[in-house]
Design a protein around this nucleic acid. Structure first.
Length: 339
DNA sequence: ATTTGTCCCTGCGGGC
DNA sequence: TGCCCGCAGGGACAAA
């Protein structure tokens, strides 16, 4: 594990490939302290959507589960929601569990069975959570593992006191990420949480269909986190391609067959991405740097102007809901009834 | 009421 | 070579 990091074992690299690109461009002089990380073979940008967040949660669990928060500090760019409690309220609380809700990382803090607080992290565009196992006698030792992009630095140990055995940091290049520390009532009253739609992997076709409604483009509906939680630009495009549905089709004009097919494709794409992203993250930790298996299998995302893998037609680009959108004009016809 | 557009922010890459 | 500008993205907010 983490053969690139002689200073300590157990470095979880859940990092934006954007940064890898930067590291690759100027080896040895990147923004990172310490030795160069291994380089993935494909530096394509991947945003943390549902599958990536699920992967983050799974890979962080063994590093933080059961440990007690001994240190927490916002070191750059305030990122706490207005309704958040100060991070110091979480000191001395044990990590009771790590889970995911939509694109949110949810850390339960306090003693089971009813841990009193939740630390909720939205990675947005460029956020990443990284855990480094080691022995950290003081805050300065924790700071030594941070990067110029570290916004929040935390330390965990068995008893909530130094020395810490795990450094947990929230890195975020574009500083869009957000955090909220709250009790049950505070979380329930956080508007984003309160309005968050159901998990797509648990959703029944009838419930999905009932939530679509409206006249807007189907892709805009998929991106709306109050309709379904966790779908971002990548998986919206990929799911619509898999379902053969044009992203501009008005939601209200989709028949029940198309809605059911779209949900099935959303679930299939997300499930496959979860499986492949897990392997991708592990590749990041390998010295050989085999990464990007899923990124290379994108059917449409980022492939505008290139031939469709299914029919060979040139993939088209447009904007839907302010987001770059790629689709196949042949496999995803705009006119109703073509497929 | 619903939907669309703008802004936030940073790094990258193309064009000149 | 180096500067400038557009692009990328999720979600809040403003505007239509």
């Amino acid at each position: 594990m983490a053969s690139c990091n002689p200073a300590g074992a157990g470095l979880v690299r859940v990092r934006r490939p954007l940064l890898w690109k930067q590291v690759r461009k100027s080896p040895g002089r990147g923004p990172w302290h310490g030795p160069d990380p291994p380089r993935p073979s494909c530096p394509r940008v991947v945003m943390p959507e549902l599958p990536e967040v699920e992967t983050v949660v799974r890979s962080l669990r063994p590093h933080v589960d059961g440990k007690v928060l001994a240190y927490a500090d916002v070191v750059r760019r305030p990122c706490l929601e207005a309704a958040s409690k100060p991070l110091s309220d979480a000191l001395g609380l044990r990590v009771a569990g790590l889970s995911r809700r939509g694109k949110l990382v949810v850390m339960a803090l306090g003693d089971a069975p009813r841990p009193p607080l939740r630390l909720v992290v939205h990675l947005r565009m460029t956020g990443s959570l990284l855990a480094t196992d080691g022995l950290f006698p003081d805050p300065q030792a924790l700071r030594a593992v941070s990067s110029p992009y570290t916004r929040v630095l935390m330390g965990l140990s068995g008893d909530g006191r130094f020395p810490c055995t795990c450094a947990l940091r929230f890195d975020d290049v574009r500083t869009f990420g957000r955090m909220l520390l709250a009790d049950g009532a505070g979380l329930a009253s956080w508007p984003f949480w309160a309005k968050l739609g159901p998990e797509p992997l648990d959703l029944a076709p009838a419930a999905f269909s009932a939530r679509l409604g409206g006249r807007r483009a189907i892709k805009a509906a998929l991106l709306d986190q109050t309709v379904v939680a966790g779908i971002g630009n990548i998986y919206a495009d990929e799911s619509l391609f898999a379902a053969g549905i044009n992203p501009l089709r008005p939601t209200g004009l989709l028949d029940e067959d198309e809605r059911a097919r779209l949900l099935a494709c959303v679930q299939a794409v997300l499930s496959r991405a979860i499986a492949e992203c897990g392997s991708s993250i592990r590749d990041y930790r390998d010295a050989d740097g085999r990464a990007g298996a899923f990124q290379n299998s994108f059917a449409v995302y980022g492939r505008g102007g290139q031939p469709c893998r299914a029919c060979g037609a040139t993939l088209e680009r447009c904007r839907v809901g302010g987001r770059s959108t790629v689709f196949c004009p042949h496999c995803q016809p705009l006119k109703n009834g073509c497929r």
